[in-house]
Design a protein around this nucleic acid. Sequence first.
RNA 1: UCCGCGUUAGCUCAAUGGUAGAGCAUUCGGCUGUUAACCGAAGGGUUGUAAGUUCGAGUCUUACACGCGGAGCCA
Length: 443
Amino acid sequence: MSIKFLIKIRYLMQIIHISDLKNYIGQEVTLRGWLFNKRSGGKVRFVILRDGTGYLQCVYFKGNVTEDTFDAADRTGQESSIEVTGKVKEEPRAAGGYELDAKGLTIIQNANNYPITPKDHGIEFLLDNRHLWLRSKKQVAILKIRHRIVKAIRDFFDDRGFTLMDTPILTPNAVEGTSTLFETKYFDLGSAYLTQSGQLYAEAGAMALGKVYTFGPTFRAEKSKTRRHLTEFWMVEPEAAFFDLNDNMDLAESFLEYIVQTVLKEMKNELGILERDTSKLENVKKPLPRISYDEAIEILKKNNVKLEWGKDISGADETIISNQFDRPVIVHRYPAEIKAFYMKRDPENPKIALAMDVLAPEGYGEIIGGSQREDDLDQLLERIKEHNLPQEAFEWYLDLRRYGTVPHAGFGLGLERTVSWICGLDHLREAIPFPRMIYRNTP
RNA sequence: UCCGCGUUAGCUCAAUGGUAGAGCAUUCGGCUGUUAACCGAAGGGUUGUAAGUUCGAGUCUUACACGCGGAGCCA
């Protein structure tokens, strides 16, 4: 065969992805990707190809292929980049149902000694190799579900008249004045802090656009060392004018239902790879149970846990409460003292803030926190004093109450906690591609 | 910051105070349907660091370093 002829064949060959195999049964195709794993018989070689869209077993029989090709199948290492050609066929013995009756194997780059072998590894090693760990089956499934959740979040708000509004990451002050923030030098203006929430800015947006949401990274410099904390995480925060606490809870409820039901419907394969028991996710439908903080204390009392009125609900207590229900539970009307300065007081009881948290089932804890905001100028001024916050830093925020203030509300949903819950992960660090934790900022 | 646990081959882990071991990975050989394939062989070690107890320390003691889990804080 002349070189010209080979080039012609090369151009005629259809280059496809594994996810499209079903449309090419019986046809000769080319696929490109990485060698996921391989096995061998005496005169047969099984090469598992992955290309980001799926996995495909390519079968090389000695005699059916050239010596060179058969040797190539032998000497190609795990995660080598390769190009394969062959005929697509249905094959119940192969995982995925399709197989490639392979003819050609081109090694783009032969990888030697890939660190993540097909056996167990410790978490430290895997995190050190996070850039490679992302290639493994479960991590690919998690990344895809995370992407689908992000898309569901955006679709949900976009379809309901919310406008995406990005808020600054570098901010001049602490939003709630409590959390420890990452500090950085900012030219001649002194210090700037990495944002811990876009909410105050989103409130300005809600007064401009009616309904907005902000979706971006947030940062907490707390020295938290648990499976529920990262120092850098993503949060989506809707904020709507003329919303009260009930509207806010209605929105959160529809929102969670939409996200979970969308993932259940469209990500069956990935949930299967993660071996997620989806029966508990099926229940995530309106209406979600709503209980007050006072009722939460009663539930704890029945379970022999004493919680003094005015104290915050701990992680363990959250689990006890959420175990009483078969779906996420909304807890509302917390003691004002343990909540942020901008939350509106209950007109019926000034000791209570019109706050709401949503606790995920199965011990995943708080995934949503929100409130109706204080819209009265004098009340807000008083709160700022009580919390010892510098009023001048909040003048712009107070302007929102001076010029056409209206009742409004919003909440924040932690993306990684949501991904972790829906995927059934045991640690937040697998819910984000490159986790940032107190003792790790690499790779 | 506090409490608990851990650190042995590239990776995951064994080893009663008495010669440092296995599986995976790597290299070589075998097998025509493998599914974390399997079978045979080989190479691979300053047992986290420093000191101490002991005839003898991977093992016991102390300090330090690093990591993991939990508490607090929060999404």
